[in-house]
Nucleic acid binder design. Structure first.
Lengths: 202, 202
DNA sequence: TAGAGTTGACAACGTTCGTAGTCAATTGAG
DNA sequence: CTCAATTGACTACGAACGTTGTCAACTCTA
């Protein structure tokens, strides 16, 4: 069989390798979500994970591959949270907006490191900004769904861009401690923004 | 007298020193406004400016001091442009919004390097993100002026944050080529956003 | 013309980084 | 027990960076 070459300390090789990869990912999330993006170097990750550089290159080819993996994990989680929220919400726009925004706020505030990775890391990290769209993808579903589709394409593009920027800046400010409002008020304001975006096309 | 120790090649020392400083600032603006922030290293700036590192440290104590100087020059220019635009506009909100936004769009699009320095560089560059507010200051005047001041403080904060984020993301997307609309439509949309921000507090 | 101010090309120091390699110690399989 | 798989501590290399220093060449003043 492939994998599980031999058991060691009660676990198989592939298990331990996976555990190390997970440990590296968690450590990188911690570093990337706490302080500057330049702080997450191969050496720093290995030191904090108490692993040797060898095990780094066992799981990742590059430093960039690690950064990308961390980011995509968080993006996937956010995307799943949004999809679930929309599915389990009522059919009307207000209900959808409320549960989507709430889900996102919950995700970002329950583990601020993820919020920072999602919103603040991409511009900082070349490996992420090379992805182009950056933080837009997981927002896209939410935004497009809310936008009336009879309006002009350019208007829709601009409205989506503006909405994403507004939400991202709000969350960023909240994460940074600049915005001194309660979580509920933040959520309510975001819902109002999402619903108001449609109203712009009058 | 202080300065002008001696004339050299037709100009005084202080003149030449100022010229070198200006050349370094221009070169840094070019590098910071074209490509990643990491590309603007002391060596790179000096190479492109055809100056020696010695003259770098003649005008700037640090690499950070150069970055800061470039950023603040652009911020000052933007601030002046906004103040002038507001002063020379009509007294009503729509007129103020239109000329403010137009002035900003003109500044950012006539020299995209300045736009990128203003909007994209701060998150990238630790020397700039340490300033905290980042790109908010020059927007603040515009935003606060437009916001009805009877609404709750937290709401005003959130609305201002959202508006700044929306505008910044729109300009960023436009600069990055993602937004395929005409300059006039972009301006019009931004004006609508600024005016619509008030309407949110119903 | 002699000497001081000024310039430019370049080397040097110490640090950090990404990445790869060495080697003794530990651990389980036969 | 023996040996190979596996681990961990450590070193090594080349590159880039910020920063400082060296030194010959040029240009003006006296």
């Amino acid at each position: 069989m492939a994998g599980a070459a031999r058991t060691w300390a009660g676990t198989t090789l592939t298990d331990r390798k996976a555990a190390r990869r997970r440990l590296l990912l968690d450590t990188a999330l911690d570093l990337l979500g706490t302080g500057s993006g330049a702080a997450v170097s191969v050496r720093a990750v290995c030191r904090q994970a108490k692993l040797t550089e060898r095990y780094f290159y066992e799981s990742f080819a590059d430093r960039d591959e690690l950064i990308l993996a961390v980011y995509e994990e968080v993006v996937d989680e956010a995307h799943r949270a949004l999809v679930d929220a929309v599915r389990s919400s009522g059919p009307d726009a207000r209900s959808r907006a409320e549960s989507s925004v709430s889900a996102f706020v919950k995700l970002i505030l329950d583990d601020p490191r993820k919020g920072r990775v999602l919103l603040l890391a991409p511009p900082t990290e070349p490996a992420l900004s090379r992805l182009g769209v950056q933080r837009l993808p997981m927002f896209a579903a939410l935004v497009r769904e809310q936008l009336a589709d009879k309006v002009d394409e350019g208007d829709r593009e601009m409205t989506a861009t503006a909405l994403v920027g507004a939400l991202a800046n709000l969350f960023s400010a909240y994460l940074g401690g600049t915005l001194r409002v309660s979580r509920d008020r933040l959520t309510a304001h975001c819902v109002r923004l999402v619903l108001g975006a449609n109203a712009l096309h009058s």
